[in-house]
Amino acid sequence: MPEPLIQIRDVNYAYTKEEDVLHDISMDIYPGEFVAFVGQNGAGKTTCAKLMNGILKPRTGEVVVDGQLTEEVAASVIARNVGYSYQNPDHQIWAMKVEDEIKFGPNNLSFSEAEVKEQVEEALELANLTDKRDEYTFALGWGERQKLAVASILAMRPKIIIVDEPTTGLDKDGSLRIMNLLQRLNKKGLTVVIITHDIDIVAAYANRVVVFAGGHIVRDDMVEEVMVDLDALEKADLRPPQHIRVALALKEYGVEVEMSPELLRENISNLLQKA
């Protein structure tokens, strides 16, 4: 088992003195994982993510990123390893031109000029923005600004990227584009954490799902397990995707079927063709 990239141990966190928004949170995130945080608004997902990149420090307990206690190092040091892409790309895009936006991060992290150049090229290419490098950032569509936000983080070569609501406000095509980008990066070894309400996206892309409710983790498991844990999902106000609802209804009826859409279709069609 490799060392975890991020260790969260018995963490409590409060924005105000009155009330903790996270209670006794513990989890390890390993290199190469594709994790989804789900839960109602206010359940603690984003707070947890901000603890992971050192913007917030725990009230009690500890967060270790790449072997370093977040309390003992500056947020800018952690930012090298943990990239964080905000829910609204306009909260993080500041430059006039696409390329300048992507350069900003690595320039500030004391990479050499040659490294910056290489990393910017790589990020442009990964996000499919190479031919848009000279465009004005405000002239891009929402989906492209979302990709630009991710690209500007990639340029810092983080070990893990946290993306808050990558698909909100995007149509099917735009959602697929950003999710396929994250999947490609994950296959290349980048650890990915997404925060989302979209259960179809979770089922299609994540390996592991952490369900938050009321500042607690109510389930942390492989995606296949969580998708059929109706109680845990309900605590996050979620229902499984339609194909899983169908599979569960058939299971209850005594017909054993697979839970992926493709296998489920194959199963049913085989069962019906046997006769």
Binding site: P241, Q242, H243, P261, R265, I268, L272, Q273
Partner: peptide, 13 residues
């Protein structure tokens, strides 16, 4: 919808 896709396959078969 997934069920439309599924039912279409079954009808076509």
């Amino acid at each position: 919808p997934f069920v439309a896709d599924l039912m279409s396959t079954l009808v076509d078969q």
